[in-house]
Design a protein around this nucleic acid. Structure first.
Lengths: 306, 306
DNA sequence: CCAAGTTACGAGTCACGTAAGGATT
DNA sequence: AATCCTTACGTGACTCGTAACTTGG
């Protein structure tokens, strides 16, 4: 046991380099990231080189572009870090502005549809008739970053989880589960399984599936939960409208997995998934809530529900 | 409900500005921060001005220097953020290096003394005789940042908490409580309270206290836990040696609060604190542990203990 | 009036863009 | 041959330091 002297040195890692790295890693392309970030391709190359020489580790494999092991590790940290930077900026900036006469709610399509959002908003508008409420529907990642940046006051995201729930993947945002529902597979009426009471996900590994990652969980996620391979996309739906997706599935273009709460009460043939035990959960996500703000009131309205 | 378009814009906040801001806020001085960071005072002034103009909020009051409300908010985010940057760097950098033949443990003085550290290290050295073990003792903040930076493989910190324990103040590091003990006040033998079985902290608010923030909890913390004012420093001990502090207290220079486990078995008069119910807890702190590393083994040895 | 932060200004650096160069498919 | 990343190089912007200025105790 020796007494300690504190050491402190130069610390070059700068945020812009991380932003660029994340963009390149996500897009799998230097030139793509250049367009997205408004730089030239050469600048991107230089920034990545700077980051790699700073950390003294190759972060990306080139041609095709993919993350190295170290790069993957950095990516995890970087995404969280940049999100938190956004939270910090939003949090501080908010303090200058007047106490928000409007409420902007971001939501993924299924979160907007299921969960008590519509009811909670009704209750809120009853209590604050003059409040200007906006709901914006978008992909999960966009909802999260927009909430982090303060563009949305709060967000609702959804996803599949095992009934025992971890999922607090971003430590800079607070997430609370506000509703859970079973999940079901939408089938065409003439499908052999139609009418069954329940089914096992793994039995459908070889069926034709619809990849609709803007609406429901991507097939890769379903594959992971089922624990078996398969679930290959036979059809791709890029829209964000739930009803259209249901119609496509009902018309036999492929299977899709949705929470039971998202299904229309009649006219659609759907079978409950009984194994594995997964639930569709809606999470209420927010940064720091200001006492008495509309966002805080909405949180209170949503929280107590099961 | 309207469909969504994702928005994305310029994001100037850079890490260096945050480092400077944190230094200034912590030291309460531009010129002090300049010395610490190796800049001129003017540069610091410019960096703070840049940050404030970027965020469009005054962050610091000048003369004397203190944080504004917005600044205080930013400070919370910034400290966590910078720590996480360090964690990211250490995590990635570690991947280049060979699998560590040495183990460096950082610890606060009381954490090194109490807790099963000595025993756990013995067990570890028995299993890995050739392992080069170093224990460095330092202040809590230094231990945390050094662990974050990878300078220490793991850390042991200590502090007072209510028996129901939150304390995971840094989301980028993992902390596990590994030992708890009651706390006691060290008295001189001729002190009127000496020999009592227990006492209430609030009864000692007006006594002479020793401020020894490098060893035990600062008086401000004790004041907070007691819930009453007082606990004013009558004596200041800047060292990090527990025994010296105990001797000073025993000699009547003032009171000090220590975990019972840190007291020598005989020769010292000390009285247990019975109210409020606080415990001294030692936390085991680490970043990401590599499978099979000495650090991971030590974690396993320390974890099961109560 | 002194300590401490701000402002002005010049200099050096650093990072970007242009453009040419490789490499891989 | 086409695409995509890297390298070379010149230029512009940015940030730092010096030094003069200002303000508050």
């Amino acid at each position: 046991m020796v007494s300690c002297t504190s050491i402190s040195d130069a610390y070059p890692v700068e945020a812009q380099l991380l932003r660029t790295f994340v963009a390149v890693a996500r897009l799998g392309s230097f030139s793509g990231a250049a367009v997205e970030l408004g730089y030239t391709q050469a600048a991107i190359s230089q920034q990545i080189a700077a980051l790699e020489s700073d950390l003294k580790v190759p972060l990306l494999n080139r041609r095709p572009v993919s993350t190295t092991e170290a790069g993957a590790r950095l990516l995890e940290h970087a995404e969280e870090l940049l999100l938190r930077l956004d939270v910090a900026r939003a949090d501080v900036t908010r303090m200058t502005q007047p106490p928000a006469a409007a409420l902007v709610v971001g939501a993924t399509p299924l979160a907007a549809g299921s969960s008590g959002l519509a009811l909670a908003l009704s209750a809120l508008r009853r209590r604050r008739p003059r409040l200007d409420v906006t709901v914006q529907v978008g992909a999960r990642a966009n909802v999260l970053t927009s909430v982090a940046r303060g563009e949305f006051d709060v967000g609702l995201t959804d996803g599949l989880t095992a009934p025992g729930d971890p999922l607090s993947e971003f430590s800079s945002l607070t997430a609370v589960g506000i509703s859970q529902a079973g999940v079901a597979i939408v089938l065409s009426c003439d499908h052999p399984l139609a009418g069954r009471a329940g089914l096992r996900l793994s039995d459908l590994a070889d069926a034709r599936w619809i990849e609709a990652s803007d609406v429901t969980s991507p097939l890769s996620e379903i594959r992971r939960l089922a624990g078996v391979d398969g679930f290959r996309p036979a059809f791709r739906y890029d829209g964000s409208d739930t009803m259209s997706l249901i119609r496509l599935a009902a018309a036999g273009h492929g299977l899709t997995l949705l929470p039971e709460t998202a299904l229309p009460p009649t006219g659609i043939s759907a079978v409950r998934v009984t194994s594995p035990r997964v639930v569709h959960r809606v999470d209420f996500v927010h940064g720091s809530l200001r006492e008495g703000s509309p966002a805080a009131e909405l949180a209170a309205l949503l929280a107590p529900r099961g």
